[in-house]
Amino acid sequence: MSAGLVGIAVIDILLFLFLVLIAIAIARLRNLFAIAMLAGVFSLLSAGLFVTLDAMDVAFTEAAVGAGISTVLMLGTLALTVREEKPVTHSPFLPLLVCAITGAALIYGTLDMPPFGAADNPVQTHVAPYYLEQTPVEIGIPNAVAAVLASYRGFDTLGEVVVVFTAAIAVLLLLGGGGRSGRHGKVAGERKKD
């Protein structure tokens, strides 16, 4: 094994170790502010994992969306609600059992998966070679990810944009933040304070 691969393995193990530690900390903490910040750190570490997998675009998105904007929105939600989680009243054994069974099923499922990174994996032999070979010819841009995202899979991306738009509509309908209804909502909020 070359020195580079050993280095990546060490980084992967460290990142996964930190992810597990943060997950345990999130499960044990009761302060929601700290949990929101730790969730941001979790996303940032996941972005690091994506970098070691050479998935730069995904890492970029995870860092910007997961660690950046979701943390801000989470804190905004906290300011609307409460900062402390309610004490747990039920016994932890049933959730633990559910988690253990689901985790075991997921690990059992991975046994059927093709070996990680093998050249004859379905993901490497299906449409990916076509995209990688034809992007310089058909699209003429260096970033194959952008070519797949916006051209080969343009319909999917259009769907994603519509989903993002729908999220805004849903939040604005629930909280009343857009346009005329927004001003009404604000007036109602101010009245409540008085």
């Binding site: 929105l73 905004g76 909280l175 927004g182």
Partner: peptide
């Protein structure tokens, strides 16, 4: 869309907060 949606959601949350 993404920029406007993110800002709209943030404004929706923040304009309710003291």
């Amino acid at each position: 869309t993404v920029a406007a949606v993110m800002m709209a959601i943030f404004v929706a949350f923040a304009s309710h907060n003291p």
